[in-house]
Design a protein around this nucleic acid. Structure first.
Lengths: 146, 146
DNA sequence: ATCAATTGAGTTGTGCACAATCGAGTTGCA
DNA sequence: TGCAACTCGATTGTGCACAACTCAATTGAT
């Protein structure tokens, strides 16, 4: 086996799977007016109600260069509000608007639909989840070490 | 378990792994002057020597909107050449330049380095590769059906 | 032989991702 | 107390990804 064959590269398999997932989410989220990364932000907000941009970045592993414009679009769409933290004026708190909170109900059926589209059972998905978690951790560590 | 919890979403695990891989490749490829998607194109060219834009799109599952500017940058970097297919003037053939062919040797050690950074054994990686392949196929099918 | 439908690249517009940088606000230490 | 170091968010610039569209070349059906 040739180490440089495209089809043998796990990296391409991950990349392709990620884009295929994105395409399925694009279709499912269109009705909610959200993109996939915007949906990820909403997941965090539906869990916590309010988060600083900093903590959002930690949760999603995104920096402010990505989050700032994304949050601006979510604010323009009327689903979140942004305001400086009175206790620390450097920090910006992001909260759900009532409209944003209402979106949650419409997002509820999504995970099941994606699971069905994946063609995999719960156990297999859980296994994949764990494996990818380990992979991401290893890669991240190796990146910070080097 | 809450279906909408970020940490329970396999989609986020895939997304995060993909970006972590991209980060590692970014570091490794910097010396070659390539980005990760450009490296994927080069993989195909190192295999086949010459490919039409159309076939590249099939191999990488990318459309011309992504490939056209990317190939333009590779051409500007001097590693590929583009010319109309004399047999079918609609088609554009992409070929390696000698400089592009030389890059292959410098890319050779990459897969091993990434494998080490992944912290996973060959069997486990092969397994992940297969699982992701099935996932991508299922998602793609479900997308075209709907 | 003609022309309508199809194919293949390219362009435009939108949005994500990251590096590098800036500036305001905060903290800590001399 | 005063100032240097640090933190946080925003901005700029580059590149990837996809949808929608344009246009030229080709194909096929009549």
């Amino acid at each position: 086996m040739d180490a440089l064959r495209l089809d043998d590269q796990v990296c391409f398999a991950v990349h392709a799977a990620s884009r295929a997932l994105d395409a399925v989410y694009r279709r499912e989220l269109a009705a909610l007016g959200l993109t996939y990364p915007q949906y990820l932000v909403m997941l965090v907000l539906w869990e916590r109600g309010q988060v600083s941009v900093k903590d959002l970045g930690v949760a999603l592993r995104l920096d402010s260069g990505t989050l700032s414009p994304l949050l601006k679009r979510l604010e323009a769409a009327g689903v979140v509000r942004r305001e400086r933290d009175p206790g620390d004026e450097r920090s910006v708190l992001v909260r759900l608007t009532p409209e944003g909170a209402l979106l949650r109900a419409r997002a509820e059926p999504l995970p099941r639909r994606i699971m069905e589209a994946s063609g995999m059972g719960p156990d297999e998905l859980a296994d994949l989840h764990r494996t990818l978690g380990r992979l991401t951790r290893s890669l991240t560590e190796s990146a910070t070490r080097a």
